[in-house]
């Protein structure tokens, strides 16, 4: 079922209720409040929302930055390792001063500096199956910006299990793709990728494309969480920056998908989970 372009609705814990915006918040976000952007209630929903992002490098970093600046209330991210010089062509949350330091702490500090009103939780490792489910369960939305399909599919399973929207942002070289998944309504990543695509550790990347795709992932998240605008659930956006081509394909669910079909009940220890 394709629901691309559906009008967004309130959802989950980011729905009605909770504290209104403060005067400081109204001032801070005034340029994104009004016709064609967010309503005050939409902004308040962002404030009440939690987004879980794994990882916050070339794409997840710009996504996290945009979400923090937009006023998402809580950002939980996972990113391990130490910052390397070769990260700095794209990882906007890093800096030369942070080289050699743990990425999680550096990136969290960067986000907090951008907006002290946002709560940032940093996890300095790749979540395993159980942790991914636990984190997705705390979130209103999951952004998958991981460097491997194994991790992307793990996040997909967790999001489907928890019934939480997933946005998958991916890139190679000067190309990028963006998929928004509404669990059990639109195609999940396993529907789209029935076979595990090949793993490539040292993929090429231009920071401009990863930044663009990450920013678009954040925009989708903002629309879904705020209930404003039209989501692109059920479609894949392809941006080929190398040749200046963009296209969109309407994705189809796999009725026998081992992850999201109605016959499946998720378990972190299921055969589907162990295959990755």
């Amino acid at each position: 079922m394709n629901v691309m372009g559906e009008q967004n609705q309130e959802r989950g814990s980011s729905g009605m209720g909770g504290p209104p915006l403060t005067d400081e918040e109204r001032t801070r976000y005034q340029r994104q409040l009004g016709p064609g952007v967010l309503t005050e209630e939409g902004q308040a929903r962002l404030k009440r929302s939690t987004v879980f992002i794994s990882r916050v490098g070339g794409m997840g970093g710009p996504a996290a930055l945009a979400l923090a600046m937009a006023g998402v209330g809580r950002i939980i991210f996972a990113h391990g390792g130490r910052l390397e010089l070769a990260d700095l062509n794209r990882q906007v949350l890093g800096s030369e001063q942070g080289l050699g330091k743990p990425r999680a702490a550096e990136f969290a500090a960067c986000l907090r500096q951008k907006n002290r009103l946002v709560t940032v939780e940093a996890i300095d490792r790749e979540p395993d199956d159980a942790e991914a489910v636990a984190l997705a369960g705390r979130a209103d939305l999951v952004i998958s910006a991981a460097p491997t399909f194994a991790e992307r599919l793990r996040l997909n399973r967790a999001a489907v299990a928890c019934g939480v929207p997933l946005i998958d942002a991916a890139q190679w070289g000067m190309t990028g793709t963006l998929i928004a998944v509404k669990p059990r309504v639109t195609a999940c990543l396993r529907c789209v990728y029935p076979q595990d695509p090949p793993f490539e550790e040292m993929f090429p990347v231009i920071g401009a494309i990863s930044g663009a795709v990450g920013s678009l992932a954040a925009l989708e998240a903002i629309k879904i969480l705020s209930g404003v605008g039209q989501s692109t659930f059920g479609s894949l956006l392809l941006i080929d920056g190398y040749r200046g081509h963009e296209s969109r394909m309407q994705l189809q669910r796999n009725p026998t998908c081992p992850c999201c079909s109605s016959l499946q009940r998720f378990s972190p220890m299921s055969r589907e989970a162990s295959r990755d």
Partner: peptide, 10 residues
């Protein structure tokens, strides 16, 4: 006809 080799870079 679009043929897209899956990408997973993060």
């Amino acid at each position: 006809l679009v043929v897209l080799a899956p990408v997973a870079g993060g």
